[in-house]
Design a binder for these strands. Structure first.
Ligand SMILES: [Zn+2]
Ligand SMILES: [Zn+2]
Ligand SMILES: [Zn+2]
Ligand SMILES: [Zn+2]
Lengths: 138, 138
DNA sequence: CTTGACCCTAATGTTAACTTTAGGGTTTAT
DNA sequence: ATAAACCCTAAAGTTAACATTAGGGTCAAG
């Protein structure tokens, strides 16, 4: 139960087999040991590593950024806490900016939707369309 | 100063000329009038349209979604006010979903960043890396 | 009248993050 | 012993959203 074949790793991380091989090619995962037959044999640790990748991805990191995080981690003894925190904070302010922009579009759309009667008549005179014409959404 | 050539439109919207032609091919922009020499001639209105595209894009909308928004007017004669309003409301709830997702990412990142001392010492024990490893974050 | 900045179309190239395909070996279960 | 299920590599395909290139007109300035 110690070493995992790629299919088992795939199943327990919910990541496609081809994706795991892709991550390896992209150096997001170390090249695993091989059995006599050539099959990849992953240590349990790899489960954590794959989950790290998925989690970071869910937080909006690109594979490139994740690679940088993993590099910092592997080379932890040569990089400062500050460097790592900086990566996280850059991402955080990026996310906050996008939230603000989305909120501004939200209110624009809400305003539009509120002005429309939503009735069954043809939309020729629909207020939404009129507003779009006049550049209410910009 | 009424009609714009593609280069002027490109410059004042900060979008590449090739991109404008691409948008046209993708039906995000109406096919503009042409001068006798074949040059595209855009009305001022197009400035607003291009900026709308760029802004919506920065908010994470795909060109496909943007196309739907921009097509509301064109579809007006074939659809009821109700249908048009429905499209707007779908977009609105889409935007609200995105906001919620981003907010959950925001708090996860903020939690991470807060736990890290950000000091100059080596990142061997950095809490960000530890948390990503341990899955303490969602 | 020539140079350089623009414009045109059509086609091909690019990047990210995968997925699919082609062509074979290997394991497992019946 | 044979079929289903798994594994391998190398390469090509996919999607989005452009960018670049090739080949060729157009226009203002000097
Ligand atoms: Zn109405
Ligand atoms: Zn309406
Ligand atoms: Zn620290
Ligand atoms: Zn730290």
């Amino acid at each position: 139960m110690s070493m995992l074949k790629i299919g088992q790793l795939a199943k327990s991380t919910n990541v496609a087999v081809a994706t795991l091989r892709y991550y390896e090619a992209q150096k997001l995962l170390q090249r695993p040991a091989r059995a006599a037959n050539g099959y990849r044999l992953y240590p349990q640790e790899t489960l954590t590593q794959v989950r790290f990748i998925k989690r970071a991805q869910a937080l909006g990191f690109s594979l490139q950024e994740i690679r940088e995080l993993l590099f910092l981690k592997v080379e932890a003894t040569r990089h400062s806490c500050h460097e790592v925190k900086q990566v996280a904070e850059d991402k955080l302010s990026n996310v906050r900016e996008r939230i603000l922009e989305l909120q501004s579009i939200e209110s624009a759309l809400a305003t539009l939707a509120n002005k429309c009667c939503g009735g069954p008549e043809m939309a020729a005179g629909c207020s939404i369309l009129r507003e779009l014409d006049e550049g209410a959404i910009k």
